[in-house]
Nucleic acid binder design. Structure first.
Length: 227
DNA sequence: GTCCAGGGCCTAC
DNA sequence: GTAGGCCATGGA
């Protein structure tokens, strides 16, 4: 049934072609910068990095910390994020000579664990990097995912609440179990959920008028109470 | 002026 | 182990 939801969203919104970024490395940087921050602020920070020729692993690790912090200031938490960017770049240089292409043959779970071992990279950021920068079959679970699904399946007791213990893994396991697909499918499904939560469904508790129609679709599918 | 946004870490209990 | 605080900017 999640595939049905995916199909309905795809027909309504088309292919969102997410995530913005000229290169896989830029996508990784965006994933770190967007932590608890709106994308418009991240765009400013990335623009600054480009202007100052800092958008490379070697540049970020060699430049003075305060210069990097200043460049990403618009994204907020700039001191923390500067340290996180440098840690990620140091890992990339040390492990893969700064070349994301060299991660190609690394099993996805190994790669995920490597990313999680870097300070400042948690579940969401790691999965965003895996899915959107490295084309790995991983479904990103973020604030939009929780929001969109809670609106669609509002009364479903099996959906964990965002922030609750183990909610990330529970939600991810649930969705990936129901929606078995490749990187392209997970990429698009998550992007469509973001659009659903962002553009059409600002008004909680349910997206009345939304083309997908949370309750109308949910009820009409005859699967009330289950995700 | 207040709230919120595409998290994650640290610390006190 | 769990809850709460902290990091910080910019738009609505």
């Amino acid at each position: 049934m999640l595939m049905e939801l995916h199909t309905k969203l795809f027909l309504e919104f088309g292919d969102p072609q997410w995530w913005p970024g000229d290169t896989p490395f830029e996508v990784c940087i965006g994933a770190i910068l967007t932590q608890n921050t709106s994308w418009s602020n991240v765009e400013r920070a990335i623009s600054n990095l480009k202007e100052r020729s800092l958008l490379s692993p070697s540049a970020m690790t060699s430049v003075q910390a305060n210069v990097l912090s200043e460049a990403i200031r618009p994204s907020g938490y700039y001191n923390r994020k500067a340290a996180r960017l440098r840690a990620f770049c140091a890992y990339l240089l040390e492990r893969y000579e700064g070349d994301l292409e060299m991660t190609r043959d690394v099993p996805v779970l190994d790669l995920r664990n490597e990313l999680l071992a870097i300070g400042g990279i948690g579940n969401e950021t790691a999965d965003s990097i895996l899915c959107y920068a490295l084309d790995r079959p991983v479904l990103v679970i973020d604030a939009y995912t929780f929001r969109a699904l809670s609106r669609i399946f509002g009364s479903c007791p099996e959906l964990p609440e965002r922030g609750s213990r183990g909610s990330y893994g529970t939600m991810q396991g649930l969705l990936m179990g129901l929606l078995k697909g490749d990187a392209c499918l997970y990429n698009r499904f998550h992007a469509l959920l973001v659009l659903l939560g962002k553009e059409r469904c600002r008004t909680a508790p349910c997206c009345i008028g939304c083309p997908v129609g949370p309750m109308c679709w949910y009820a009409s599918s005859g699967t009330e109470g289950r995700a």
